[in-house]
Amino acid sequence: MEENKRIKDCKVVIIGGSAGSLQALLQILPFVEKTISFAIVIVVHRKNTDEQTLEDLIALKAKLKVKEVEDKVKLEAGFIYIAPSNYHLLFEKNETLSLDTSEKINYSRPSIDVSFESAAEIYTNHLIGILLSGSNSDGTVGLKAIQAAGGISVVQNPLSADMPYMPNNAILHTTPDFVLKTEEILEFIKEINQE
C-alpha cells in the first residue's frame, strides 16, 4: 500500500458493491458531509423489483442529496448518484451520465466493471474507485482500469466485508492502493481533497 498516494483534485468517487454492500454503504454515507468537493456514484447489484428502496434508504440516511439518475443527468459535486437497476451506467466527456441496456456483464446490469472503466476513461487521475462486499467477480477489471488511468483503487478489507469474495478477488488480481476496513473507508473519504 502506498500510504502517501493522495489525490488532490478528486472529482468522482465511484463505489461498487454487491451482496452485503448495503450495510457498508449505510456505515459510510450518513457520515459524509454535504460540503464534499466531489460527486459520489454508487453502482450496486440489485433486483429489478426493489428499484426505489435503495435510493430511498440512502436518501433518508445521508446528509448528501441523492440525485435521481435519468439519462444525461449532469454530474455535480456534493451529490450522490445511484445506478438504476437494469441499465449500465456510463460517463460522457461533457460530465453527464448516460445509460445503456446492452448485455449483462459478469451476470450483472449495472456492471461495476463497465462503470469503473467508463469513469476511468473520463476522470483519469481525478477518480477514486472503491470496491465493497459481494459474491461475484465484478469490479476487479474496473479497478485495474482506474489504476491504469492514474486513479486510486480502494478495496474493502475482506475481513470487514459481509461477502468477502468480491474484495478478495480484487486483491488477488490487482494491487489495490488501499485495503481498508469499513470505518477506515469513511475516514479515507473524509480526507479526500483535504490538504
Binding site: K72, H88, L90, F91, E92, K93, S98, D100, S102, V114, S118, E121, I122
Partner: peptide, 9 residues
Amino acid sequence: YSRASLKRR
C-alpha cells in the same frame, strides 16, 4: 450517438 456507449459497442 452518445459516445460512451458507442465506443464500447
